[in-house]
Design a protein around this nucleic acid. Sequence first.
DNA 1: GTATTAACGATTATAGATAATTTTGACAAG
DNA 2: CTTGTCAAAATTATCTATAATCGTTAATAC
Lengths: 218, 218
Amino acid sequence: MVEPDGKLKKRTLYSDEIREVIKQAIISEELKPGERVVETRWAKKLGVSQSPVREAIRDLEMMGFIENRPYQGAFVRKMDKKDVIDAYYVREALEMAAMRYAVEVITDDQLEDILNVMEEMKQAVKDGNFELFVEKDSLFHEKIMQVSNNELLIKLWNQCKIREYTSISAWISDLTLETLAERHNSLYLALKTKNKEMAIEAVTEHFEVLIEEMNNIS
Amino acid sequence: MVEPDGKLKKRTLYSDEIREVIKQAIISEELKPGERVVETRWAKKLGVSQSPVREAIRDLEMMGFIENRPYQGAFVRKMDKKDVIDAYYVREALEMAAMRYAVEVITDDQLEDILNVMEEMKQAVKDGNFELFVEKDSLFHEKIMQVSNNELLIKLWNQCKIREYTSISAWISDLTLETLAERHNSLYLALKTKNKEMAIEAVTEHFEVLIEEMNNIS
DNA sequence: GTATTAACGATTATAGATAATTTTGACAAG
DNA sequence: CTTGTCAAAATTATCTATAATCGTTAATAC
């Protein structure tokens, strides 16, 4: 499988890789909301058979990117304002659960790790690097979730986090990134001081603001 | 497709049906935790091809029944005490979110519906019908979730609810079913009086007790 | 003209066969 | 007795082909 020039040449693509390709197509809006995702088309396009494409589509359905109707096909999920707000409510519940537990068990190493991510996030804002900000923001919350050490919690959280991708770019411009970044301070502070009430307050406020801003778009 | 005797004779099984068959095998412990679920075996056993069995297994993985490792196979998930407690914490978070919203929007019809289910649940206890109790208990909570009108919330809740199946039978005998049934009263009352604080209190207590009892087992 | 049905094309879902990967077990070397 | 190598067996992942289903359009009956 290793060619003379040292490059890897794979015989075929795995369903995981196909999933990522289609996912990127959705995120980049190459595939638009409501549009159909035809198994055979993508199979031909990627030079693979129908089976792994089918699996990829099923995975994307579970992740919330796609809606699947029996014998009718798969469609890129349309996400309206309510969907996004609903997702925020769920995320609030899950991150609240994580934080309540995290303040009791977080280690110094984990605290430092999270602080670093927050600094990188602020730097990304200063540099005006939107992509990097989104990545670091996501990582910041992910680190907190991981402290909870609750596999199921993390799994579900990942499923509702996804829904941001397609919407965030639409409204982020109306906010100053700085404000968003600064808001993570209180989350970090609650963890650092191991203050449960502050943690609850911080999460509540974090999402109140996000939901509020989402409501003001229309 | 309809035979002379009037029975339906299907050409083949759909993956959904296969999923249910395997799920039942897991719940009934015909397939034990840790045991392997071999695609080709089940295909032969059910007289279908590998494809729909594979899909069924993937679905069961998403539902938390099965653990899948690439090129190694699928195994019935082992569920230890921590897994069950973790699931309770997540359920608490999700049901809390649902209740907070439900008290504000619940209609009289929905209230009556929930009351009826609660009565049926208590009746099942009186009759000593364990299976029916579990079904009604599940339905009770499901109805509350539905009031929230948050699709994502319901979807995730369904995923963590599943984890009870395999564990509940192991410890339920140590509790009086009556106590369990009675505990739903405060949940209903909070909804009826549309009292947010009472709702929060009720959910918190409900799961505190469940988690406590889970901890007191082995 | 409208409603109902039949046939077609496109696509999904499954079947049957092949390729890729891991696991197992026998055997040899240390 | 342990470790490592190799081939065979078992199983997963994918490929190709076929069957089932849906949506549409055209034809027919009323």
